[in-house]
């Protein structure tokens, strides 16, 4: 494209710049008379979208057992590395977290942990009021994170589908599981 030169063009550019700036000024100034989009929190609670990502909780499955199986995927997905946990196992073979710690002073509420969680255990809630006077109090342990209900996906139970034998659910008793193979059978 041929570059335009000459005084006329120069004046045009100057005018264009000034014109656009002045329009901006006028438009901004016109906002003096518009209503504020923000609300006066805390007197008035703002609207929180259903997928709002706030304080993280650990949920329980429909039978009331902890959903978290301490697989560590949330921790590895976490971009700020603010989740740490240690696996432990009870006599029935159920995995759970010995400790589960979230350092909320580092958490950015990105929800990657929730996305990574294969058991729907870790979920982000609507609560964002996490202020503390002591930074140390921002470190949440498992007892602070665990809630009594299932949260989202209320019917999901990981061990129902895992094929692993845990208390009350023997091999083959889960959903879509066949009876355990009988080695002594001679049938074809």
């Amino acid at each position: 494209m041929k570059q335009k030169t000459g005084l006329g063009h120069y004046i045009y550019i100057v005018w264009d710049y000034f014109y656009s700036n002045i329009v901006t000024l006028v438009k901004v100034a016109s906002h003096t008379f518009t209503k504020a989009d923000t609300v006066e929190y805390p007197e008035q609670m703002p609207y929180l979208a259903p997928r709002f990502r706030g304080r993280i909780v650990l949920t329980r499955d429909p039978t009331g057992e902890e959903r978290c199986v301490a697989c560590n995927l949330c921790a590895s997905a976490c971009p700020t590395d603010c989740i740490s946990l240690q696996k432990t196992e009870d006599e029935s073979g159920r995995w759970s977290a010995e400790y589960f710690r979230i350092n909320f002073s580092r958490c950015v509420f990105c929800g990657m942990c929730e996305e990574a969680c294969p058991t729907y255990a870790i979920q982000l809630t609507q609560d964002f009021e996490l202020a503390e006077y002591e930074r140390q109090n921002m470190v949440y342990e498992k007892q602070h994170l665990l809630i009594d209900g299932p949260g989202k996906h209320p019917d999901y139970s990981f061990y129902e589908l895992s094929g692993k034998a845990v208390s009350g659910r023997a091999k083959g008793a889960g959903t879509q599981e066949a009876e355990p193979v009988n080695l002594k059978s001679l049938l074809p």
Partner: peptide, 8 residues
């Protein structure tokens, strides 16, 4: 600035 940005 608040007023012009539609906040308080």
């Amino acid at each position: 600035l608040g007023i012009w940005q539609d906040r308080y």
